[in-house]
């Protein structure tokens, strides 16, 4: 699995950071950044949850 984000769509709700803090962060502008593009297998569920919850659909999860 790898993760990409569209920060231009992000509305800064922060649900990704709350649920997968090892993978997502918020920059100084509060918009999404990716800490780990290829999450560890044990992080996969949290990343999928972050993708489902994102209100602006800024997170794309790619299956390798």
């Amino acid at each position: 699995m790898h993760v990409t984000v569209a920060a231009d769509r992000c509305v800064g709700a922060g649900q990704c950071v709350l649920n997968a803090p090892e993978v997502f962060d918020q920059g100084d502008d509060g918009l999404v950044t990716v800490l780990r593009e290829r999450p560890a297998p044990e992080e996969a569920a949290a990343v999928r949850l972050a993708g489902t919850l994102c209100p602006s659909r800024s997170i794309t999860i790619h299956q390798d």
Partner: peptide, 14 residues
């Protein structure tokens, strides 16, 4: 408006 306020409510700030 939203963009101006987002930094005030990040997970870290909270």
């Amino acid at each position: 408006f939203r963009k101006a306020l987002i930094p005030e409510f990040t997970v870290r700030r909270v």
